[in-house]
């Protein structure tokens, strides 16, 4: 039952692909794919999220949409440094702030990233395993967790120069911009945990990243205001145990901290007019195109130029090469830590 929605959306997408010349928008109501989740709502890939949880088929907003898979390797990865300050540049007069929030993305990509802390933990596990088993360890690579999750942002708002704020609560989010003709992006601020990147952004558009160390030091974790439709909130209300009570208190504190920081940074409340969902793959900033012909042509990740805030291990490649490169990195660290001699890990005297 859990996957029926995804299967239906996939079937609709495949049907649409089969009719590439005359793209057909599925006729069913996309709102049926809105589901309650632990920390908000979620939907499935193929459904785009607008303001106030309004859902649309992705084909209503773009033409030539193709689901991303592991073959869609981007052309370049441009590693950029995250910002040092705890605050982004303030929105200028005349700029319109557009806020997008995702708890976590869903679509896996062939861009793999792991933080230094993650690599250190894997090296540690490798060493501890070797001490006990005394042989080489199987790969610690994780396609699922290291693969950055693609989130499309389709921008159609041409009413004013936009200051786009992209917020992700969890790590490894790769935002993919698709701008309708006439959209003017004045600035992009990206907030996230772990690896954070943006694909298909024009070189001329100023972009700032806050993630990893900067986000930690500034205490910035994008968190939504707990609401009644969250399953977590519902459970907390039904179960009066201290576990839920404490967790709810912690969530409220985290939200309050983020809301305070956000308002100071951008001069508006974080929740006001935010377009967001706990789990989704596409967002629409602005109105739906009035005609089919007015839709922007979808820019895929394949052959795109990507900007990523620095991580220890980043690679854009196929799965096999990722595993090979990853394991070589782990082995390199292990050999360095043991002084070049694996036998020193042995407990044989």
């Amino acid at each position: 039952m859990k996957h029926l929605g995804a299967i239906a959306v996939l079937a609709a997408s495949l049907f649409t692909l089969g009719c590439a010349e005359e793209e057909i928008i599925p006729q069913s109501d996309p709102n049926q794919f809105l589901r309650s989740d632990i920390r908000g709502f979620k939907t499935t890939p193929g459904i785009a999220v607008g303001p106030a949880h309004e859902l649309h088929w992705i084909q209503e907003a773009v033409q030539g949409y193709t689901p991303t898979d592991f073959k869609d390797v981007p052309a370049t990865l441009n590693i950029v440094s995250p910002m040092i300050s705890c605050y982004f540049r303030e929105p200028a007069e005349g700029e319109k702030l557009a806020k997008v929030y995702v708890g976590r993305g869903q679509v896996r990509t062939p861009v793999f990233a792991a933080s230094k802390q993650t690599i250190a933990k894997r090296v540690e596990d490798w060493i501890e395993h070797y001490k006990v088993r005394g042989n080489r360890v199987t790969s610690r690579a994780s396609v699922n967790s290291d693969s950055m999750k693609l989130v499309d942002v389709i921008v159609t708002d041409t009413s004013a120069p936009l200051y786009l704020v992209l917020q992700a609560e969890t790590g490894n989010t790769l935002w993919n911009l698709n701008l309708t003709e006439g959209v003017e992006l004045a600035h992009v601020a990206v907030i996230g945990q772990g690896a954070t990147g943006v694909a298909n952004i024009d070189e001329s558009i100023p972009i700032e990243f806050m993630n990893n160390q900067a986000a930690d030091e500034c205490g910035v974790i994008p968190v939504r205001k707990p609401a009644d439709h969250w399953l977590f909130v519902q459970r907390a209300k039904a179960d009066k145990s201290s576990v839920y009570k404490d967790a709810m208190k912690k969530n409220k504190e985290m939200y309050k901290k983020y809301a305070t920081w956000f308002e100071r940074s951008f001069n508006v409340p974080s929740e006001k007019s935010v377009i967001g969902l706990n789990e989704a793959s596409h967002f629409i900033v602005g109105p739906l195109p009035e005609t089919m012909g007015a839709r922007v042509t979808y820019k895929p990740l394949k052959d795109a130029h990507v900007k990523i805030a620095s991580e220890t291990f980043i690679i854009a490649t196929n799965k096999a090469t990722y595993v090979k490169e990853h394991d070589a990195l782990i082995s390199g660290h292990v050999m360095k830590l043991v002084g070049g001699d694996l036998s020193t890990l042995s407990t044989d005297s």
Binding site: K116, Q117, A120, V123, E124, I127, E128, K131, H333, V334, L337, V338, T344, L345, S346, T347
Partner: peptide, 13 residues
């Protein structure tokens, strides 16, 4: 970031 792993690696020695 690898300091504690380094010590774990040298512990058998």
């Amino acid at each position: 970031d690898f300091a504690h792993v380094f010590v774990k690696a040298r512990a058998p020695r």
